[in-house]
Amino acid sequence: MILSLLILNKAGGLVYHRDFSNTFTKLSSNDYLVLAGTFHGVHAITARLSPFGPSSGGTPSSGLEVMESEHFRMQCFQTLTGTKFLLFTEPQQPNVDVILRRIYELYADYVMKNPFYQIEMPIRCEAFDRHLMAYIKPKQ
């Protein structure tokens, strides 16, 4: 069961937010903006937090990827360009990786190829919404 999706731009601002279920209490829209900003900061801090330094492959450690509690699980997928996809699901949801990849694909198609979308601005693409709902709904 997928709960909600947040997309953050390079600067940490919230560009997209969508709830897929009614089983949890909703925050106000301002709260979501604060949440996004906070997560962006936490992600940056956690990238530096590892006591081991860069791994043997030379890649520096990434920031926070998964956060799990009894009631929900949050997974973060960061793209090479700094865009973060936050997916909130129930803890027992399988294949979150696959779902995040597919969402990234939909983003690359219907948001980036849209000439009316301005980069780093809030996403208002009807095609993206439509395809996202069509993809997520059967999984609920």
Partner: peptide, 14 residues
């Protein structure tokens, strides 16, 4: 296929 026209330009068809 990939174009979503914003609401204020509703009559546009690319």
């Amino acid at each position: 296929t990939y174009i979503s026209v914003p609401k204020e330009m509703n009559q546009l068809n690319c």
